[in-house]
Write a protein that binds this DNA or RNA. Structure first.
Ligand SMILES: [Zn+2]
Length: 135
DNA sequence: CTTGTGAATATGACCTAT
DNA sequence: TATAGGTCATATTCACAA
């Protein structure tokens, strides 16, 4: 649940993978006025309040979706290299990982119900996960 | 060092889609 | 119906000339 402003801000931030920077101490007070003054702290608060980046359609997938729609009725000529599903896309990030890490990621993000999300303890035990852009 | 101006970016209220 | 992406007028920031 969020306002339209933060909804748009969050979506733009995630899809474009923008990395903001706080000009102060990463602890700016965010309200309807100040939210426009520090994007870093705004995004930080969005996450703190529970907004999840994994609920934003990754740009790469969104692109194939748009292309499919733009193609109109004739759904031919679809020789795109882009992934056709979230699972397919996430799998491309699995290459080169140890089987243990790979399995852990699969179990926590690919096949299970939408409500499951790793706890801080889970994340701490697999800091390697932070390397993935999609997170 | 101020001010004006137009381009580039970001925002958010409203809309559409599933 | 709930929630996510799309739209685009408006607002803000930026670059640079005067
Ligand atoms: Zn800040």
């Amino acid at each position: 649940m969020t306002c339209e402003g933060c909804k748009g801000f969050f979506r733009r931030s995630v899809t474009k993978k923008i990395v903001y920077e706080c000009k102060f101490n990463k602890c700016c007070h965010i309200d309807t006025f100040m939210r426009r003054k520090c994007q870093y702290c705004r995004l930080k608060k969005c996450v703190e309040q529970g907004m999840r980046m994994d609920l934003v359609l990754p740009e790469e997938l969104n692109k194939t979706k748009r292309e499919a729609k733009a193609a109109g009725s004739g759904s031919h000529l679809c020789s795109s290299e882009s992934p056709n599903s979230l699972s397919e896309m996430k799998l491309s990030y699995m290459e080169g990982l140890s089987p243990e890490i790979s399995e852990l990621i699969k179990r926590t993000t690919l096949n299970n119900n939408n409500n499951f999300w790793p706890t801080d303890a889970d994340l701490a035990s697999i800091s390697v996960i932070l390397k993935f852009k999609i997170f």
